[in-house]
Each structure stands twice: as C-alpha cells, then as structure tokens.
Simulated scan of single mutants.
Amino acid sequence: MKQAGSSGDMAGRNGEALLVEKAKNGDTKAFEDLIKMTRGKIYNLGLRLLRNKDDAADIMQETYISAYKNLPKFKGNSSFSTWLYRIATNFALMRMRKEEGKKISEEQLKELSSHIYNTAIADWTLSPTTYLKQQELREIMEKAIASLPPKYRAVFILRDIEGIPIAEVSNILSISASAVKTRTHRSRLYLREKLSEYFNNSGERVR
C-alpha cells in the first residue's frame, strides 16, 4: 500500500512538473489546469491564516496573478505547490501584520515558553484539527491562533493544521528548520495554556 501511494505521489509531481513546463512555454490551458489542481489548498490556507472568506479569495487571486507573472523565474528547486504556498503565505503575512486587535507579543511568547512547565497545562492529547472540530472549543482555539504573532501563526497553521513537513515549511517561509521547530513549539505551548484556561474555568480536569 505504501509503495502504491509513493508511486501515486510521484506521478502527481511528474504531472505537475509537466504542466509547469507547458505553462512556461505559453500554454495557458496548462496553467489553468495547475490552478484547478491547487486552488482548493491555496484558498483554505488563506482562510485559515486570515479567517475571512473575502480575504482568502483575494489572496488566492493575488497568488495566481503573481505566479503567472513570475513563472519564468520558477526554477523547480521546490514543487510548484510549495512555491504557491510561499507566495500565498507572503501575501497573507503582509495582511496579517496590518491587522488590528490585541495579540501576544513575540517577547511574551518567548517568556511563556521558558516557564510554562511550572504550571499545570492540558496535554496536547488531541490534534489541533480535532479541537477545531469540537464546537465548544472551536471559537476559543481560533481566537487563540488568531492572537499569535503573524510569523508564529503561519508556522503553526502550515505545520499543525495543514500537516506540511518541517523541511517544506522551512522552504515556504525561507527560515531554518530549527526556527520552524522553535516557533511551532512556542505556539503549541501558548495554545495549550489557552485550552487549559478553558478547561479550568469550565471545571474540566487538566490532564
């Protein structure tokens, strides 16, 4: 089964690469096919980062316009999908940095990670996506994610919500793998504390 899946992934990457080459040679139909293959992922990424359907649609449009204009510069050092993620995330980060509202500062996040183990916090026993599916926790989880500094929010969503490997997140955000790990860890600690506050206030036992 694993071998068949790997063959399927390879075929998908080869098909994507072939479409990219055709698009670079002026085949607009090939680029349209690339959009059809990837637009769902790009829209969902924008929606998770910005929490607004209109903004997500704008990000998706801006991403494909930029990708089309810069297609000759795409060297194939990463997959086309990874390249699109990088473009979309950069556009989203620019919008996120302009957002108003209270967010935890990066210094506060660092301080939190240094002493978090001195307090009782809920175990990350469920995946973040599982928490998001539970109605009573969804709003708390989404607000906590939205309150993260933009670069931490981007890493957390790419790693823990989208499930993208560390090396690929590193490529998308142009940061080191160790930075991806550090930001993911600090984001998880912060979100775990927010969930602990909910469990404590609602009388749930903290594991």
Score class of each variant (00 low, 15 high):
Ile87Gln: 09
Ala88Ile: 00
Thr89Val: 07
Thr89Asn: 00
Thr89Arg: 00
Asn90Phe: 07
Asn90Ala: 07
Asn90Met: 05
Phe91Leu: 05
Phe91Lys: 03
Phe91Cys: 01
Ala92Ile: 03
Ala92Val: 03
Ala92Asn: 01
Ala92Thr: 03
Leu93Glu: 12
Met94Pro: 00
Met94Asn: 14
Met94His: 11
Arg95Gln: 08
Met96Ile: 05
Arg97Lys: 05
Arg97Val: 00
Lys98Pro: 00
Lys98Ile: 02
Glu99Ile: 00
Glu100His: 01
Lys102Tyr: 10
Ile104Val: 15
Ser105Glu: 04
Ser105Pro: 04
Glu106Asp: 08
Glu106His: 05
Glu106Arg: 08
Glu106Gly: 02
Glu106Ile: 12
Glu107Met: 09
Glu107Gln: 10
Glu107Asp: 11
Gln108Ala: 07
Gln108Met: 07
Leu109Val: 02
Leu109Lys: 00
Leu109Phe: 02
Leu109Tyr: 02
Lys110Gly: 01
Lys110Met: 09
Glu111Leu: 09
Leu112Glu: 10
Leu112Ala: 08
Leu112His: 11
Ser113Gln: 10
Ser114Thr: 10
Ser114Met: 12
His115Asn: 14
His115Leu: 10
Ile116Met: 10
Ile116Gly: 06
Ile116Val: 15
Ile116Ser: 12
Tyr117Val: 08
Tyr117Ser: 13
Asn118Trp: 13
Asn118Thr: 15
Ala120Asp: 15
Ile121Cys: 11
Ile121Thr: 13
Ala122Gln: 11
Ala122Ile: 09
Ala122Tyr: 09
Asp123Arg: 15
Asp123Ala: 12
Asp123Trp: 09
Asp123Gln: 13
Asp123Gly: 14
Asp123Leu: 12
Trp124Asp: 05
Thr125Tyr: 15
Thr125Lys: 15
Leu126Val: 09
Ser127Ala: 14
Ser127Gly: 12
Pro128Val: 11
Pro128His: 07
Thr129Asn: 15
Thr129Gly: 08
Thr130Asp: 15
Tyr131His: 15
Leu132Thr: 11
Leu132Val: 13
Leu132Glu: 10
Leu132Arg: 12
Lys133Met: 10
Lys133Trp: 07
Gln134Thr: 15
Gln134Leu: 14
Gln134Pro: 00
Gln134Asp: 11
Gln134Ala: 14
Gln134Arg: 14
Leu137Met: 13
Leu137Asp: 03
Leu137Cys: 06
Arg138Glu: 08
Arg138Ser: 09
Glu139Ser: 14
Ile140Ala: 10
Ile140Leu: 13
Met141Ser: 11
Glu142Arg: 11
Glu142Lys: 10
Lys143His: 11
Ala144Gly: 14
Ala144Phe: 10
Ile145Phe: 03
Ile145Leu: 07
Ile145Val: 13
Ser147Leu: 05
Ser147Arg: 04
Leu148Glu: 05
Leu148Gly: 00
Lys151Phe: 05
Lys151Cys: 04
Tyr152His: 13
Arg153His: 06
Ala154Cys: 06
Ala154Ser: 08
Phe156Trp: 10
Ile157Gly: 01
Leu158His: 03
Leu158Ser: 02
Leu158Val: 06
Arg159Cys: 11
Arg159Ala: 11
Arg159Pro: 04
Ile161Asn: 02
Ile161Glu: 03
Ile161Lys: 01
Glu162Lys: 03
Gly163Phe: 07
Gly163Trp: 07
Ile164Trp: 02
Pro165Glu: 12
Pro165Lys: 06
